[in-house]
Design a protein around this nucleic acid. Structure first.
Length: 490
RNA sequence: GGCGGCGUAGCCAAGUGGCCAAGGCAGUGGUCUGCAAAACCAUUAUUCAUCGGUUCGACUCCGAUCGCCGCCUCCA
C-alpha cells in the first residue's frame, strides 16, 4: 500500500513518490505574526502536525520547514498603531504562537526560518529573475512579469485573460501588466528597510517562500502546503518565481486544507466571528479541539459550534473510558484456572485495527475514517471486557492491554489519548465541578443523609434528595463503594 | 462574470463502480440498579439534492437542473 495524496496541481489523488527514496521534504506556509492566532491557524498547524507524524510512523524521514512572515504591510501598520517596531511586534506574536502551539501539543518543525533573516537569499533570487528578463524595476519597486511565465495560473486553474476581466486590483501605474506582482518594495520614510541593488526597501510577500524553500529543501521538493486561501495568489506566485528562476519544477505535490467556519461563514475580523486559539483552550481541553478538527477530512470545511465541541467531548471521553476500564484491570488479579473468553474471531477483529487505520490514513490522511476505526475497536474491546465475569484469565488481561496500547499508539498520531486515561477523566470531572459554583460540603451532607435513608429503605426521601441535586445539575451514582457525585455535562 | 468545491439518517461525518451505505452525537430497547444515573450492549438510511445518460451493475463515472460555499484584494 502506498500513501495517496490529493494534489491541488493535478486535482487528483496520487501515490506519494518521494524524489529521494524514503525522505519527504515538506514546506508549509506559516503565520504572518501580527496578532494572536485563531482556530483556523490551529487547523493548519494540527493538520500538518498529523501529516508529519503519520509519514514518520510509516517509516519516512521528513524534513519539515515552516516559515514565519515577520515583515509585511500588516505588521508595519500594526506596529505603528502600537507605537512599537515591527521587529518587536513580530517577535512578540511569534512567542504567543509558540505558547498556543505548545498548549496544543504541536511538534516543532525541523526548520522555522524567518523572512527577515533571509533578505540576501531573496535579493539573490530577484536578481536572477531580472537577469532572465522575468522581472523589472519600476521606480523603487521590482515586479515580476507574469507574461514571462507561460504556465502562470496552472495551480489555481485560471488564466491571465479571465483575471484581467474580473480585475478588482488597484490600478498601479508602474505595472506593465495589471497582474504583475511585487518582488521588492521601495520603502517609505519610517518603514523598516534593507539595502538592495534597487535601493532601500523590503521584500514582497511571495518571494520569501521561494527563497527559503530553495535554501532548505532545494530547487525541487516533495510537498508544499497551506490553507486553501493561499492557492491564489501566494502559491501561484511562488511557482512563477521559483520555476522562473530555477528552470525546474518547484513542487511535486500541493496540499491545501479547508477553512474553519462559524455558522457556515468563513471566520473574518470584519464579520466579528473570530475565535483565537486561547479563547477555545480556555473552555476546552486541547485534545477535544484536536478530536473535533480531525473528525472531518482536512480538505473539507469545518464548522465550529458549541454543539460540535460537545459531540467531540463525548466522543473523546468514550475513547478514554474504554482505555481507563482496561487500565484498571490488574494482572495480579488474574485467575490461573480461568478459561479465556477470546475467540479467534474476536482476536482477528481487534488486530485488524492497525491495518484498517493505515488504510484510512493512506487514503489522503483520512482522519475521520481513522476515528471510525478507533470506535469500532473500542466497541470490540468493551464487548470483550463485558464478557469477562469474575476473575479474568491472564491471557485476556494481556490481550486487552495490548489492544489499548495499540489504540493509544495510533491515536497519538492525531495527538489523542496521550494522557493517562484515569487522570484525564478525573480531571474532566473536577473541571466540571470547578466550572460550576457548587458547595461540595453541602452536597456531601445531603449524600450522608440519603445514605441513612437508603439503609432505612426510605426510598421516597432518598429519591427526593437525588432529584433536588439533579435539579442543581448534580448527578448521583450509587456504587458498591458508596455514592459518588458529578456535575452533569451540559 | 471566471475558476474550484460541496449537497449521504434529527445533527456531525466516512465511503479509491459490485457482499447488509463506516463511525460519532442525539433517540429507542436492554444489562446493571431498591428505583435511577453513569457505563456497557443492541438498534436506527430499500437509500445517497433532483432529473437524465454510460454500464450486467453507480452514492461512486458523464450531462443538465436546483441549493450552498470558497477563491478571483490581505487571509490558515
Amino acid at each position: 500500500m502506498t500513501i495517496q495524496i490529493h494534489n491541488t496541481l493535478s486535482g487528483k489523488k496520487e501515490p506519494l513518490q518521494t524524489l529521494e527514496p524514503g525522505h519527504v521534504k515538506l514546506y508549509v506556509c506559516g503565520i504572518t505574526s501580527y496578532d494572536f492566532c485563531h482556530i483556523g491557524h490551529a487547523r493548519s498547524a494540527l493538520a500538518f502536525d498529523m501529516i508529519v507524524r503519520y509519514l514518520r510512523y510509516r517509516g519516512y524521514k521528513v524534513t519539515f520547514v515552516r516559515n514565519f512572515t515577520d515583515i509585511d504591510d500588516k505588521i508595519i501598520a500594526r506596529a505603528q498603531e502600537q507605537g512599537t517596531s515591527s521587529e518587536e511586534l513580530a517577535n512578540r506574536f511569534i512567542n504567543e504562537f509558540y505558547i498556543d502551539m505548545d498548549r496544543l501539543g504541536v511538534d516543532r518543525p525541523d526548520i522555522e526560518p524567518k523572512a527577515t533573516e533571509h533578505i540576501k537569499e531573496m535579493t539573490d533570487l530577484i536578481g536572477e529573475l531580472i537577469g532572465k528578463g522575468m522581472a523589472y524595476q519600476a521606480g523603487n519597486d521590482v515586479y515580476y512579469i507574469v507574461d514571462s511565465f507561460p504556465e502562470y495560473g496552472k495551480l489555481s486553474k485560471r488564466n491571465l485573460e479571465d483575471m484581467k476581466a474580473g480585475a478588482r486590483i488597484t490600478v498601479n501605474e508602474q505595472k506593465k501588466h495589471p497582474m504583475d506582482f511585487v518582488l521588492w518594495k521601495g520603502s517609505k520614510p519610517g518603514e523598516p528597510t534593507w539595502d538592495s541593488p534597487w535601493g532601500p526597501g523590503r521584500p514582497g510577500w511571495h518571494i520569501e517562500c521561494s527563497a527559503m524553500s530553495r535554501k532548505y529543501l532545494g530547487e525541487t521538493f516533495d510537498i508544499h502546503g497551506g490553507g486553501q486561501d493561499l492557492i491564489f495568489p501566494h502559491h501561484e506566485n511562488e511557482i512563477a518565481q521559483s520555476e522562473g528562476a530555477n528552470g525546474k519544477p518547484f513542487v511535486k505535490s500541493w496540499i491545501h486544507h479547508g477553512f474553519v467556519t462559524i455558522r457556515d461563514e468563513k471566520m473574518s475580523k470584519s464579520l466579528g466571528n473570530f475565535l483565537t486559539i486561547r479563547d477555545i483552550l480556555d473552555h476546552y481541553h486541547p485534545e477535544i479541539l484536536r478530536f473535533f478538527i480531525f473528525s472531518t477530512h482536512y480538505r473539507n470545511p469545518l464548522d465550529f459550534s458549541e454543539s460540535a465541541m460537545k459531540d467531540a467531548t463525548a466522543g473523546l471521553e468514550r475513547l478514554y473510558e474504554c482505555v481507563a476500564a482496561v487500565d484498571s484491570l490488574d494482572p495480579a488479579s488474574a485467575d490461573k484456572t480461568a478459561k479465556s473468553i477470546l475467540t479467534p474471531k474476536d482476536i482477528k477483529k481487534v488486530m485488524e485495527l492497525e491495518t484498517r487505520f493505515q488504510q484510512a490514513m493512506d487514503n489522503d490522511f483520512n482522519t475521520a475514517q481513522a476515528q471510525g476505526v478507533f470506535f469500532d475497536t473500542v466497541k470490540n474491546i468493551n464487548r470483550l471486557h463485558g464478557k469477562i465475569t469474575g476473575a479474568p484469565a491472564a491471557e485476556d488481561i494481556r490481550f486487552l492491554k495490548n489492544a489499548t496500547a495499540l489504540l493509544k499508539k495510533l491515536a497519538a498520531i492525531m495527538g489523542l489519548l496521550t494522557e493517562d486515561a484515569q487522570s484525564f477523566l478525573a480531571a474532566r470531572r473536577e473541571k466540571r465541578i470547578a466550572d460550576s459554583d457548587i458547595d461540595a460540603s453541602a452536597i456531601d451532607a445531603l449524600i450522608a443523609e440519603r445514605y441513612q435513608c437508603r439503609l432505612d429503605k426510605n426510598w421516597a426521601r432518598s429519591d427526593q434528595i437525588r432529584d433536588e441535586l439533579l435539579a442543581r445539575n448534580i448527578e448521583l451514582c450509587d456504587g458498591p463503594e458508596g455514592t459518588t457525585w458529578s456535575v452533569k455535562s451540559k
